[in-house]
């Protein structure tokens, strides 16, 4: 087990270098540059631009830039400076991260509770009306794009019914975060529902469920202990990888509801061609992804004793 974790942690190093380098190169390949962006429509004097480019190290070859960036990040925990605001990227991250974390957590809770709940309901009644209705709803949630769903919810719940505020002004207010969290959770929720449903329906026919019934166990124990322990294994795998997707996939949702989180910051950084900010944000997301995946794999062994890591 210890060796397995160590090996997985070591594997993170090449993934980490690969993703950061890739982002760096991709931003470099985009036309335009952040210093010119500072001047807007006006053309700045070539001397000033050159000076600024030198100050941010943008005049050096891309691999040298990358090397300096990684060196500062690893040795000094310095993620560079956001060119547009002149603030350290760590500050920008510090502002945006908790907002996204709150949004993603709320979405995750909705996804788990509603998704698994609906999945169990449908799976226990596979092939019957409840099952078909749930499958239809999940199909709808998967096929409707996020911005359409967000817009519909806004129109209905914010403007017509006046139940929820249309935008997020205070990101610590969970009431305001509820609607964006639902929008963010929608597609994943549908996948969780379908995955749970299939797993439950399949395990319900398993021999050990018949044994559990033959033992005279009450139904809630047959379902709650014997069925669930087996059915939720694939669902938990999906949920683990989805944590990362919820954190990073909020670009559209955060834009739609004006949430100053990581998604919006990423979008703005792309528009301004700010490689340093972008790499910092993506690095964090990559790390979250990797750690979440590792935790899921470890949890897997706890849930299913047939899996042993060596």
């Amino acid at each position: 087990m210890g060796r397995y974790v160590a090996r997985r942690l070591l594997q993170m190093i090449p993934v980490f270098i690969g993703t950061t380098l890739l982002i760096f190169l991709m931003v470099y390949a985009l036309p335009g540059d952040p210093v010119r962006g500072l001047f807007g429509d006006k053309a700045g004097s070539p001397q000033v631009i050159a000076a600024l480019r030198h100050q941010y190290g943008l005049d050096q070859p891309i691999l040298v830039q990358y090397w300096h960036y990684m060196r500062d990040m690893i040795l000094h925990a310095d993620f560079g400076t956001q060119i547009a605001s002149g603030r350290p990227v760590t500050d920008v991250l510090g502002d945006a991260f908790p907002v996204t974390l709150r949004l993603a957590s709320l979405a995750f809770v909705i996804e788990v509770v509603v998704g698994i709940g609906l999945g169990i309901m449908a799976g226990m009644r596979a092939g019957r009306l409840t099952d078909n209705v749930v499958l239809l709803i999940s199909l709808l949630l998967i096929s409707v794009p996020v911005f359409v769903l967000g817009f519909i919810l806004k129109v209905v719940f914010a403007f017509q019914l006046n139940w929820l505020p249309p935008n997020v002004n205070d990101s610590t207010n969970y009431n305001e975060l509820l609607m964006p969290a639902i929008v963010l959770a929608a597609a994943s929720l549908a996948y969780v529902t379908r995955l749970t449903r299939t797993s439950v329906a399949e395990n319900l026919r398993a021999d050990y469920i018949r044994t559990a019934i033959a033992k005279g166990l009450p139904k809630r124990r047959v379902v709650g202990v014997h069925l669930m322990r087996n059915s939720l294994i694939p669902v938990i795998t999906y949920l683990g990888t989805d944590i990362g997707a919820l954190m990073g996939g909020a670009v559209v949702t955060e834009g739609l509801f004006n949430i100053q989180g990581i998604g919006l910051t990423i979008y703005q950084s792309i528009v301004r061609r700010e490689g340093t900010t972008l790499v910092g944000l993506v690095t964090i997301l990559v790390l979250i992804y990797l750690v979440a995946n590792l935790l899921v794999d470890l949890l897997y062994a706890v849930l299913d004793p047939r899996i042993r890591y060596a």
């Binding site: 050990y208 018949r210 087996n230 294994i233 299913d304």
Partner: peptide
């Protein structure tokens, strides 16, 4: 039951 491997709960 016949097949004890599948009739016992694996987890």
């Amino acid at each position: 039951f016949q097949d004890a491997l599948s009739s016992l709960n694996p987890v």
